[in-house]
Simulated scan of single mutants.
Amino acid sequence: MPTDELRAAMTDRVERGELPGLVTLVARDDDVTVEEIGVTAFGGDVPMRRDTPFRITSMTKPIVAAAALTLAEDGLFDLEEPVRRLLPELAGQRVLRAYDAELDDTVPLSRPVTVDDLLTFRLGHGMIVEPEMDPPVPVVRRGEELRLMFGPPEPRSLFGVDEWIGRFGSLPLIHQPGEKWMYNTGSLVLGALIARATGQSLGAVLTERIFEPLGMRDTGFSLPRERAERLPAQYGPELTETVATRPEHWVEEPPFPSGAGGLASTADDYLTFARLLLNRGVHGGTRLLSEHSIDLMTTNHLTPEQIAGGAFLLSGQGWGMGLGVGPTRYGWSGGYGTDFFVDPSQRLIAIALTQVSPFLWNGGMEEFMKLAYRP
C-alpha cells in the first residue's frame, strides 16, 4: 500500500498551509491503510482522527441514488414512470424558451420528467455552467428568492418536503427533459420523491435501506451534539471559515434534508458503502442491491454532447446514477473537499476527507488519486 509516499505528500501540503489536515483511506480488498494528518482547524490543536466526521456534501448523491434503486426494485416506483404521479406539484411545469428567458417565456414539455431523469441529472434543471452569469439569469434569481438551496447544503432548508416541492414546481425547467445533463437538482427532487413514495423522511429511508444494513453508525443528516462539535472547520476558496463551521446546524435533522449534499460521514462508514458498490450489491453475504442496479449506477448514461455540456463539473467523464463514471473507475467529490473512487479492475477504493474546498482544484486531490494507485 502507498503509505509512506502518500502520507509524505499530504503532510507536505498541510505544512505548506494549504489545509489544516485530512484523513485518507486506501483499500484493496481487506488491506486498508488510513492516514490521519494534521488538525481539524487552522491554528487549532484537535488532531484529525480516523473517526472524525466530515460534511461529505455531494458524496451524498451516490447513497441517495442507491436507496432510490432499492425502492425501485421493491416496486414503489418505476424508473421510466413520470415523477408527477408521486410529485403532482410538478405536473404543470413548462420549459424556458431559452435558459436566460423571462420566467413566463416558456414552451410545453416535450415529454414528462421520469425517475430516470432525476437519477441521470437530465430532468432539465440544475446548475448553469455556461456562459458566466453576471448578474444571474431570471430562473436562477427566482430559485434564490424561493430559497431552494441549489448550492451548498448550508444554510439548510427552512421548510419541509411539501413546501419545497411546491416551490420548485412553480419554476419552469431550463431545458427539455432528457436534453442536457445539469448538476445537482436531480438529487434534491429525488429526495422528495423518496419521501413521498415511502411516507417517511429521507433520513429514515437511508437509515433503513443503507445505514443500518451496512452498519454505517456515524452517517446521517444530523449528529449527536458531541459528534457535531467534532466536525472540522470548513474553508472556502480564500481559506476563510464559512457558515458550515457551526455545529448547531447538525444537531437536528432539517425539515427537508438535502439529497444532493446533506450528509455527514466518516472514512470507515463511506468505505463500507463503497465496498457495497465494488462487491456488486452484496454486503456480508446479503444482497442489498441487484447487479442490474449496480450497473445502472456505474455505467455512463450520457451522450458525448451531454458530457461536453457538463464542462468542468464532468471534466470529460460520464455520469451513471448519482456518481461520475470514467474509463476504469467511478466515484464523486464533495464541494467541501472530499472525494472517493472505486476501481474494480484493481479492487481499489480510495477516500480523501478534508473540509477545504480548494483541495479539489489546487492539485491536492489529483495527487491523492494518483498516489492511491502506487503499490
Rank of each mutant, 00 (worst) to 15 (best):
L6S: 13
L6G: 12
D12C: 13
R16I: 07
L19H: 09
D30I: 04
D31F: 11
D51R: 06
F54D: 08
S58R: 10
S58F: 09
P62G: 12
I63V: 15
E73G: 08
G75P: 08
L79Q: 04
E81R: 14
E81S: 15
R85H: 14
Q93M: 15
R94H: 09
R94F: 01
L96K: 02
V107L: 11
T114F: 00
D116M: 04
D116A: 10
T120R: 14
M127I: 10
V129Y: 01
E130H: 10
M133I: 02
P136N: 04
V139I: 15
G143I: 03
E145V: 12
L146I: 07
L148R: 03
S157K: 11
S157C: 03
S157F: 12
S157Y: 09
G166V: 05
R167T: 01
S170C: 04
H175M: 00
H175N: 06
Q176H: 01
G178Y: 03
K180Q: 13
G186H: 06
L202K: 10
G203T: 11
R209T: 15
F211L: 13
L214I: 13
R217H: 12
D218F: 02
F221C: 06
P232L: 08
E238C: 02
L239E: 10
T240Y: 03
T240M: 10
R246W: 10
E248K: 08
W250T: 01
A260F: 08
G261E: 08
S265N: 07
S265F: 06
L271Q: 06
F273D: 05
F273I: 11
F273L: 10
R280W: 01
R280F: 02
H283D: 14
G284V: 03
T286C: 01
L288N: 05
L289N: 03
L289I: 03
S290D: 01
L296M: 07
F312G: 03
S315C: 01
Q317A: 10
G324Q: 15
T328F: 11
T328L: 07
S333G: 00
G335D: 09
T338I: 02
D339K: 07
I351V: 13
L360E: 04
N362T: 05
G363W: 12
E366M: 13
A372Y: 02
